[in-house]
Each structure stands twice: as C-alpha cells, then as structure tokens.
Design a protein around this nucleic acid. Structure first.
Length: 876
RNA sequence: GGGCGCAUAGCUCAGCCGGUUAGAGCGCUUGCUUCACACGCAAGAGGUCGGGGAUUCGAGUUCCUCUGCGCCCACCA
C-alpha cells in the first residue's frame, strides 16, 4: 500500500506494453499460477493445445487460436476450476524433414549421404535449436499454459502411446499392410493420406485418341488428359449398356506406339455421356482404373517411378519427366494419326498440401487403418451429444466426412517420425509387431529380421494428443482427473486432419470422447479478405503487432473480431483501436490512483452508496452476469465488446465524470472506494482478454490476493441490483445529454456557463443529481422545481423534465418555436405508432404481457414528453 | 454433382431465444488546451438490414425463392 503513491507517480501518461508484459509474465511464472495439479478438490477444466509444428513461426492463425484458448482457460481458472492448459509441439514429419533436407542441400549433403542415423541426429539437433522458438512466441502472447507439462509428439511418453496404439490396432486387425494405389508426392517422395490432397480446378487439354481394333474393323475413339499414361494401359472400357459399343465388348484393340493387344471390357464406372464413352484403363496410375483393374483382373503396368520419371517400362521414353513424355507421346501420336483432336477441359487436379506438387497416384505397399469400425462410434458420439461442435453446423461437415471415409494410409516414406514397429522375417516372411523391439522372428525364431523403413503419418500421433499427453497408456492421476478434456479450440480447416482422428482414437483407446466441446474458429484474413499466406506475402506478423501495440491489443482485436466459425479480417487500424482502449483503461487507473493519493482505501463497497454509486454498481453487476453467460455460450466477441462498452461509456465517460466534483469534497472516500471496487471488478472480467495490462493495473490498485489472474471471477450479486436507481440516473443522464445537444447545436462553448432551471415531477431525483449539471452540462447554477417564469430562455424537453436555460442574446423565439414543433411532430409520430399497436386487439391479446407493458410505459413517456413540448410551445 | 457460409451505416463487422427509436470501431462534420487520457472529450450526419414471397399481432432475426460473392466435399477419364 505504501508504494501506491510511488507507483502512481511512475504511471506514464500512455501505456507502454513492452516492459510491462515481460515483467508480468515472469511474475506469473514465478508464482507458478499456470500449473495445474490433479485431485485438488476443484473441478477440472482442461484444454489441450493444438500442438504447433516445431518448424513453425507464430502467425495470425496461432495468435487467434491461442488467444481464444487462453481466454477460456483464464476465465475458468478464475471461476475456481483446476484449469489445465496442456502445451506442446508437433514433430510435423513432412514439413520438418523437408526443412532439414533443404538446409542440408545448401551444404551439398543429401539424406542418403549421412544415412538414417545421421539424419535423425541432425533432426533432433534441429528440434533442440528451433523447437522452442514457437513456444517462446506463445509466451509473448500471454498464454497461460502449464509449461511444466510441455510435451512433444516424439517424446518418450507420446512415442509409447503411439506404439501401444499401433500394436492394439494391429492385433485387432484394424491396421493392415497392403499394396494399394495411394496418393504419392513426387517431390516429398512419400505417400500422403486422402485428407492431405488438395483439389484445384485446372485448365487441361483433353486429347482424343483412337485405338485400332485388332480385327481391322475400325477404331475406338477415347479421350484422356494424360496421354503419357497410355504406356501403361491394359484395357479400354465402355459402359455395359452403351449400345454404340456393345458389339465390341470382348474384342481387342491395339495400343498405339506400344503395339500391344489390350481387351475392350465393360464396366459401369464409365460415364456414357462423358467424352466418347470410352475410357483407357491404366491401373497403375489412376485410382479408378486401379479399381476397374481389380474387378477385371487386369495386369498392372507401372510406367512412372517415385520421382515422377518415366521408368524402364516406358520404353524409349524412359528417363523423361511426365511432362516431357507427354509432349513426345502427343507428337508421335499425331504423326502416326492416332490423335483425333484436342479440346480444352477444366478438371480437378490434386496436389500435395505441403508442397503443392501434383499428386501422382501410385501403387505401393503401405500400412492402413481400417476406418469403418472406427468411424461408427465417432459419429454416434456426436449424434448422442457426448461431444458437440460450436457452431453446430460443423457437425454436418464432420458426419459427412466420416460417412465417406476410406481407409487411412498411415505409412510415410520418411525418416523423421515414429518408425513403424513391424519387423519382417527374412527367412519365413512373417511380420512381427510388438510393444518391444523384437530380436527374433515371432514365428520361426530367426534372428534375420528387418524393421520396416517407414514412419507414421504425423497425424497418427496427434490423434492421441488429448490422452497421450496425460500419461496414457499408463493409468496416471492426470489421465484420471483431467481426461476427458473439455474444450478443443481449432480452425475449421483442420477438422478432418485432427478433430475427427482424435475423436475415433479417443473412443477406441480410452472408451471416452476426448473433449466435450469443439470450439471452431475461422481464418484470419488480411484487410482485403485474402487468406494470409507466405507466397502472397500478405501476412501480418503477430509479433510485430505485439511490438507495436502490445499483446493485449492484439488479443483484444482477435477476440473482438471473433464470431464462432467465421473468418475475420485483421487490420492494423483495428489493432490501433484496441491499443487506444488499453490506454483508456490505463488512464482510468491513473485517475483513480491520483485521487487515492495517500489515502487508505477500504476494499469493498462503502456502507452508504450515492445514487451514482448504485447506478454503476448495478450496471457492473448486470454486465458481470451477461458476460459470464456469453462466455458459457462461447460468445467471446460479444463478451469483450460488452466489457469495452461498459468500461468506456459507463465507467469512464459517466461514472468517473460524475465522481470528479465529489472527490474534491467531503464524501471523497466513498467515491474512491466505489472507483476501486468497480475498477478491480472490471479488471477481473477483462483479464482473460487483456491479461497483462489488467494484472499490472490491479497490482497497483488496492487489492486483495497476490495476483489478479488467480482472483475470483465476479458473480452476479442480488445486493448490487438497483433497478430504481438505474432509472433515476437515466433520467438525469438524459437531461444532461439533452442540454449538451442543445448547446452544441447553438454553438455555445463550454466556457460559457449558464443557469439551468429544471421543471420536473421527479424533484428528489434531480435535486440529488443537480451537482452533475455543473460539470457535465456547464451549469452556473441549478434550480429544481416548477413554474419558473423566464423571459428569454431556451426550452429543452425530455420525458421527465423541461429544462430552461436563460440565454438572452442567443434566444431566437421563432427558431425555438420551429425546433420545438419539429420535435413535437417526431414524438407524435412515434406515439401514434405505439398507440396503433396498443389499440390492436390482436397485439394486446397475443403478445406476452411484458411486451405489452413496455409498450404502455413507452406510450406514457411519449405522452408525457408531448405534453411538456406543447406547454413549452405555449409558454414561448 | 452435393453441402455450407456471407450479403446490415462510406469501410470492417456485431446483432443470442422474433418484441421499444437496428449497434460498435474506423472514417466524416462541428465544437473543445474540461485539473485520467488528443491513443482524448462533447455533439452530429449517415441504414427502405441484397431482391421477391410466406408465416406472425409483430421479421434484420423464422420458412420458401431468386441474385451476387466465398468456402468445403465428391473417382466423369
């Protein structure tokens, strides 16, 4: 307390976030306030962080995601929950491996040069160097994660969970290995899952080719966008019902250039209306053709290798890239007369979501998770409301995806990741899969076994994140207490990648849903509404915003702009407005501190409350109730907006102003007490949104407890409910606004004070409020009563009072008359509207009582105002 | 081919269960060296809530339909 004066002197005129933020964050860390422990006697509330990639740098998406999580976790912590925000990072196999390979390339080293061991050593070093970068950036945001529990998807515990899950699923027959056609990225040189393929409509050329019938009776015309794959054609297909070709089914055609006989088959996969109704079948390089090939037992001829180069089966084209080969083939087909025509065609092309390289469907031996048995429970859990989405519409997306799900290809031809725990016996061929690394074949005992070279899809480990981080598969107190977690906060763009997989994994392995609520947010876009991206270079760096405006301003901007599930635009103008708000708050605190001076301030409200005290207390109270409700409903944007309005409008623009004269007089201590009470209470509610500045101010003001971040959340208190005083204050405020309005219209400067005569039926109210008119309505003198006889005065009419201000030289009776008449007409028009409703039997009989009552009160007020206006006109 | 979202003040967006005179920030206009704050104060202008129809005592809000943007999913080569 003794340092308040000292502190208040230190308070700069404008808030300087940078120094404050680092100091406050350290203070929280030293206090251990972020740490949550099991079985504390409190109810748990848990959020697991979507683990950022170790390659990552904080971008606006992270900033939004983490702001929302921190708001929720701080709020729940203050509400008295044992709030755990579980942090960590993801190894991000493809992205990380690509980065390391890239870095090595600069040194002229390739993966093969240093081998698997050497590569992994480098990768871990890389992780040690860069893995903490994103974590430090999250700290700059103010994130109150339990850093003592920080995890990594490839740490010992997570790896153990991954191994356990793999073995369990394998033993249940839900993981299998097989030769399938999968999505192959020729750049990353690995398979990727269906979810990792991004489709984009592209302009292509549709080549119409003709293949001659072997019996010499003619040709079969077909069309393709990929002529180079004809080298791997093993059939042509038509629809069984297609009369045009029915007589040809079973006959053969000669594959041009290759000069090989291939059969004409029929399959319902062929669309009769599309192209010529004839499709060339290349089982090795097209997923549909692969299926057709299976149905018809067609041979598979692979002509493209894993690097996107034509292989030895491509004959003379061997060694060419796909595009080179296409060019050559088309040229040759044309020369030989097999090319009928070309036409432009728009069609969907899949590309790798990491590197944008066109996906090459490719047959290879891979590991898969059988999805059908897992998808059912995941669907049911949401249908039965064990987990819900906010906003709800995303459930539809979730269901749809699960309904159409195909088996998940989980093996990756990468080194950085969890290596597949399968060992192949070189003698008997048996596959040994186990929790511990085997030294011999489980089947024949041979010691000549080799581990699978592949690693698992990154998402395989992230899918376990909600429980692997809590200790699963061990039965830990953490798992028991914090699991299932409560809220999962993420963007709609990773529902498929992550949310779905956590859902079915959680259900399969723990028997419980991993979280009760999935809170979905949208993308942060730039000022033009474009997606922020590296290639466009339009990204706004959150760290720069923090540097310039402060972390609180960044958070406020993101929170205020959040409407569940919707995208938002980020502009520096918004950040600036948020910074201004922080400064407003800062100065309100400065004002209070200056007025406290050396005085001791008792905590809590004073015994005797003035009218304005009851008004602000009552407003504060309803705001507390509303905001809590908004937060419960995940309406964070609305909540923070309400706080903003309360602080700026009610507290700063009115209450502080109302207090000013009182703070100079006898009753100053009560005012100081109320100021501190409302300010600290408001700081509590604002804290989850703007943690740094609120903590800093709170520490400076008289307070109870060691930190704002662990002080109790304000609750609605019936003792603070003063509806009558709120109405009274409204009457006074309306009168003050009306006077200000009139004076502004007449261009009367504040320096020109004038007496104010108030004629009203609410004499006690206005007598109590009289003092406010001096400062806020520039009154030189106030009289409250009735029947004031004033010769040259302007009249200002509210529903509750007629205010007269003598201003000889400024009064123009004609202007007054026309103004009052205009106002009268406006009031009359509105009154007519209300009366029309009240005279409508259908309205009075069908509308609920409170709506009818409001209308009646309204009519009464309008009536009153109309009467007052008419009187003023008569008295002119 | 399915599904979803958005369309409200000059700009960016709120607006929950339908219910007084539709809000905020920025911008704009006018005035203000008011002893917390010009990153401020006071006052103000600005909206037939995309078009049409329906339900209702009452619709920005519900339903249908149309238009325009945007997104997601899907194996017509």
């Amino acid at each position: 307390m003794e340092n308040i004066e000292q502190r208040s002197k230190q308070l700069a005129k404008t808030y300087e976030p940078n120094e404050v933020e680092n100091r406050i964050y350290r203070f929280w860390m030293e206090g251990g306030y972020f740490h949550a422990v099991p079985n504390s006697g409190k109810k748990p509330y848990t959020i697991v962080i979507p683990p950022p990639n170790i390659t990552g740098q904080l971008h606006m998406g992270h900033a939004l995601d983490n702001t929302l999580q921190d708001i929720l976790i701080r709020w729940r912590r203050m509400q008295g929950f044992e709030a755990l925000w579980m942090p960590g990072t993801d190894h991000a196999s493809i992205a990380t491996e690509a980065k390391i390979v890239e870095a090595m390339a600069k040194e002229g080293i390739s993966k093969e040069d240093i081998g698997r061991e050497g590569f992994l050593k480098r990768a871990w070093e890389w992780k040690e160097t860069y893995g903490s970068r994103i974590i430090n950036q999250l700290k700059k945001m103010g994130s109150s994660c339990d850093w003592e529990r920080e995890r990594f998807t490839m740490d010992e515990g997570c790896s153990k969970a991954v191994r356990e899950v793999f073995v369990r699923l394998y033993e249940k027959g839900l993981i299998y290995r097989g030769e399938r056609i999968i999505n192959w990225c020729t750049h990353c040189r690995t398979s990727i899952s269906d979810a990792e393929v991004e489709f984009e409509e592209k302009e292509a050329t549709f080549y119409h080719l003709r293949y001659p019938l072997t019996d010499g009776s003619g040709y079969l015309e077909l069309a393709t966008t990929r002529p180079e794959t004809m080298l791997g054609d093993t059939a042509v297909a038509v629809h069984p019902d297609d009369e045009r070709y029915a007589h040809l089914i079973g006959k053969n055609v000669i594959l041009p250039i290759v000069n090989k006989e291939i059969p004409i088959i029929s399959d319902t996969y062929v669309e009769m209306d599309f192209g010529t109704g004839v499709v060339k079948i290349t089982p090795a390089h097209d997923p549909n053709d692969f299926e057709v090939g299976l149905r018809h037992n067609l041979p598979v001829v692979t002509v493209i290798d894993e690097g996107g180069i034509m292989n030895e089966f491509a004959g003379k084209y061997s060694g060419m890239t796909i595009m080179e080969c296409r060019k050559e083939i088309v040229k040759e087909l044309e020369e030989q007369g097999w090319l009928v025509k070309t036409e432009p065609l728009k069609h969907n092309v899949g590309s790798c979501y990491r590197c944008r390289t066109v996906i090459e469907p490719r047959i290879s031996m891979q590991w898969f998770v059988k999805m059908e048995p897992l998808a059912g429970p995941a669907t049911e859990a949401v249908k039965n409301r064990y987990t819900r989405f906010v906003p709800e519409r995303f459930e539809k997306v979730y269901f749809h995806w699960l309904e159409n799900i195909r088996d998940w290809c989980i093996s990756r031809q990468l080194w950085w990741g969890h290596r597949i725990p399968a060992w192949y016996c070189q003698d008997c061929g048996y596959v040994t899969v186990g929790r511990d690394d085997p030294s011999v074949c489980e089947n024949c005992g041979s010691s000549d076994i080799k581990q699978d070279e592949d690693t698992l899809d990154t998402w395989f480990s992230s899918a376990l994140w909600p429980f692997s981080t809590l200790g699963w598969p061990d039965k830990t107190p953490e798992l028991d207490y914090f699991y299932p977690t409560n809220t999962l906060v993420t963007g709609y763009d990773i529902i498929f990648f992550w949310v779905v997989r956590m859902m079915f994994s959680g259900l399969e392995h723990t028997g419980k849903v991993p979280f009760d609520t999935v809170f979905i947010h949208g993308l942060v876009r730039d000022a033009q509404g474009q997606k922020m991206s590296k290639s466009l270079g339009n990204g706004i760096d959150p760290l720069e915003i923090i540097e310039q405006y402060g972390a609180d301003a960044l958070r406020f901007t993101l929170a205020a702009g959040n409407s569940p599930g919707n995208d938002m635009r980020f502009t520096t103008e918004k950040a600036e407005a948020s910074r201004n708000f922080a400064n407003k708050l800062w100065n309100a605190a400065r004002f209070i501190l200056m007025n406290i001076g050396d005085n001791k301030v008792e905590l809590g409200l004073p015994d005797k409350l003035e009218l304005e005290d009851k008004w602000i207390a009552s407003r504060f109270n309803s705001v507390a109730a509303e905001i809590t409700e908004n937060l419960e409903k995940f309406e964070l944007g609305i909540a923070v907006q309400k706080l903003h309005d309360f602080i700026w409008d009610n507290f700063c623009d009115w209450y502080i102003e109302l207090c000013k004269s009182r703070l100079q007089g006898e009753n100053a201590s009560g005012g100081r007490q109320v100021l501190v009470f409302v300010m600290t209470g408001t700081l509590k509610m604002l804290h989850p949104f703007m943690p740094f500045i609120t903590e800093e101010i709170w520490q400076t003001l008289p307070h109870e407890g060691e930190a704002l971040m662990i002080s109790p959340w304000p609750e609605y208190d019936t003792a603070l409910d003063f509806p009558e005083e709120e109405r009274e204050m409204e009457r006074i405020m309306e009168a003050i606004r009306a006077i200000r309005n009139r004076r502004a219209e007449m261009n009367v400067p504040p320096s020109k004070k004038a007496p104010v005569y108030i004629e009203t039926a609410f004499i006690p109210t206005f007598e109590r409020g009289a003092v406010f008119f001096e400062k806020l309505a520039w009154a030189s003198e106030i009289k409250v009563g009735s029947g004031f006889e004033l010769d040259r005065a302007i009249s200002i009419v509210t529903a509750d009072a007629t205010i007269k201000i003598p201003m000889d030289e400024l009064v123009d009776k004609d202007a007054e008359r026309s103004r009052l008449t205009r106002e009268k007409e406006a009031v009359k028009k509105r009154l007519d509207g209300v009366m029309a409703r009240l005279n409508n039997k259908a309205f009075t009989s069908k509308a609920p009582a409170d709506v009818v009552n409001t209308a009646k009160e309204n009519a009464a007020r309008l009536n009153e105002k109309l009467t007052l206006l008419e009187q003023s006109l008569l008295n002119l």
